[in-house]
Simulated scan of single mutants.
Amino acid sequence: MPDHADEDSNFDAEEAVRVIRTNTISKKSRDVYDGSIAQMLKWFYDNKRHLLTEQFIQYGITYGFAKADIRRFLADAPSNAPVKFEDFNVQDFMEWIVSVRKEDGSTPTYSTYNCRRAGLFNLFRDYKQDIAPLQSELKTHFRGLQRTKTQALANGEGRVKIGKDALEFALCLLLMKSAKPDYVFTHCFMTYCWNLM
């Protein structure tokens, strides 16, 4: 006998599918992507308003363009698109990318730019738009951006930091001296591996 859902039940299949779709990425990643897209949309409002939908512009005028306000608008995806995807091009996105600055006014790292690109991919995915026509051009621009950042670092602009900070020997000695005698393995490990941490 086929299994039929009770028509009087409160089960909302459409909502269940929406929840499954939003769980394609972790909450932390979604927060990062939405924050990035909120910055981009605010910049578009100030500099390239023709790329935004009238609905998003009216929402922003009514509720504001703070990150939290824009995130509430984005929560309605895939309906109520904030941008006119048919008019969206890589040049506009890259103009925003090169305008991004840290709080101290310096340019961010390449990984920060890469995160912004991932946010763009997520925006297209959330609104069920095909980003494939833009991917090749985005890849070319980001290859040039990476080379530019690498050359700037080679010329002494910015700070090079790869990996974690080393554990100082003095701190290692302090930790070993304060360790209880029961922690023999910890003592041995720190004695032989302090320079690898």
Rank of each mutant, 00 (worst) to 15 (best):
M1V: 09
D3I: 09
S9L: 07
N10F: 12
F11R: 00
D12N: 15
A13L: 15
E15Q: 13
A16L: 11
I20L: 12
R21A: 15
N23A: 01
S26L: 14
R30Y: 10
D31H: 14
D31S: 14
D31G: 14
Y33I: 08
G35I: 12
L41V: 02
E54L: 08
I57C: 13
T62D: 13
G64H: 00
I70M: 04
R71P: 02
F73M: 04
L74D: 00
D76K: 12
S79V: 12
S79A: 11
D87Q: 14
F88P: 00
F93P: 07
S99Y: 00
G105Q: 06
T112D: 06
N122D: 13
R125Q: 10
Q129S: 06
P133G: 05
Q135S: 12
S136R: 15
E137C: 03
F142N: 03
R143L: 08
L145W: 02
T150C: 00
T150I: 02
Q151R: 14
A154E: 15
A154H: 05
K161G: 02
G163I: 04
A166S: 10
L174I: 10
A179K: 04
A179N: 05
V184I: 15
H187M: 07
W194I: 04
W194Y: 09
N195C: 08
M197G: 02
